[in-house]
């Protein structure tokens, strides 16, 4: 399912003293089965942009097409749109309300008017995707830990079986293990279901590891749009926008400066590790040769 925006503008509270232009001239085409990493300094308009993708916000001007349908049009079925485009908000655990985990996850499918069996099946599936134990189904969501609550909330969106999954900082405030687990599961979903995924994150590491395309927002505009190497090659510009490149990329830069280049295009820890090992290997070999030459 593709998403297309044309000359999209959005202003909060127009005509009041608190008027705020949050999005300016956004032109994007997001194709099927892309994994988009959406980054930008705080207040750059990321959350505002993604709320346009499932019709929660209406553009002040411009167009937005989701799966070929104009979101702005009155006759576009909002319910259907939100089924297709699943949006997980920042701190989604704050939206839990039901007495049991099972009923909370079932809220979305129930709104779609599905049968009991179908709902049950989807709840089990969603719970399984986010790595929660079935034993938790009958518990109150408020008894769970923060990380577990977060998973319940994400499961609540997955249970609607969206074609596009949008996650707004899904790992904020989680421990490293929980973070990796959730992201691994998102990646598995992306690979297994040919979903389109849009991940908003402040972690350049996560973006470098997962995204097939990176979109950089700055002051309500799209500042950069390209593959991971394309975007992270422009480190100086990123820094000017209050962003950065992954830490290992900085490490590689620093090593190059100090006379030990390990190569360009180092964005993930795995890649850095092999590059460094290779370099060390080379050095050893050279030393070995030098030693043999004497």
């Amino acid at each position: 399912m593709s998403i297309e925006t044309r000359a999209l503008h959005y202003t909060y509270m127009p005509g009041s003293p608190f008027e705020k232009q949050a999005l300016t001239d956004i032109n994007l085409t997001i194709r099927d089965n892309e994994f988009i990493g959406l980054i930008g300094h705080t207040g750059s308009g990321k959350s505002t942009l993604i709320q346009h993708f499932n019709g929660l916000l209406h553009p002040s001007s411009g167009e937005i097409l989701v799966g070929g349908l104009d979101v702005n049009k009155k006759e576009t079925d909002k319910q259907e749109l939100r089924r297709q485009v699943g949006l997980v908000f920042q701190y989604p655990e704050h939206q839990l309300f039901e007495e049991t985990v099972e009923r909370d996850v079932a809220f979305g499918p129930k709104n779609l008017g599905l049968s009991e069996e179908e709902i049950h099946e989807r709840v089990l599936e969603a719970i399984h995707y986010v790595g929660l134990d079935e034993a938790l189904l009958k518990k109150s969501p408020f008894e769970l830990s923060g990380g577990q609550k977060r998973r319940v909330a994400i499961a609540g969106v997955l249970a609607m079986r969206p074609k596009v999954l949008i996650l707004d900082e899904p790992t904020a405030g989680l421990d490293p293990a929980g973070r990796d687990e959730i992201l691994t599961q998102v990646r598995a979903l992306y690979l297994a279901h040919k979903m389109t995924v849009i991940l908003v994150s402040h972690s350049m590491e996560d973006i470098a590891k997962l995204a097939t395309r990176v979109i950089v927002m700055h002051k309500g505009r799209v500042a950069m749009d390209g593959t991971v190497p394309e975007v992270f090659a422009r480190a100086a510009e990123l820094r000017q926008m209050g962003l950065d490149v992954p830490q290992v990329t900085r490490l590689a830069e620093e090593m190059a400066k100090r006379g030990m280049p390990i190569g360009d295009g180092i964005y993930t820890v795995e890649r850095a590790k092999s590059a460094i090992l290779m370099q060390l290997g080379l050095l050893k070999n050279q030393k070995g040769k030098e030693g043999a030459g004497k």
């Binding site: 709320q51 929660l56 089924r83 908000f89 939206q95 809220f107 609607m160």
Partner: peptide, 26 residues
């Protein structure tokens, strides 16, 4: 919260009084 529940297909401005009152729970 309204937005988050709407994203899960909740509907706050449809149906009769009883339905609307029920819709407020989430």
């Amino acid at each position: 919260i309204v937005k988050a529940q709407e994203a899960r297909g909740a509907c706050f401005d449809h149906g009769n009084v009883v339905r609307r009152a029920k819709a407020l729970v989430p």
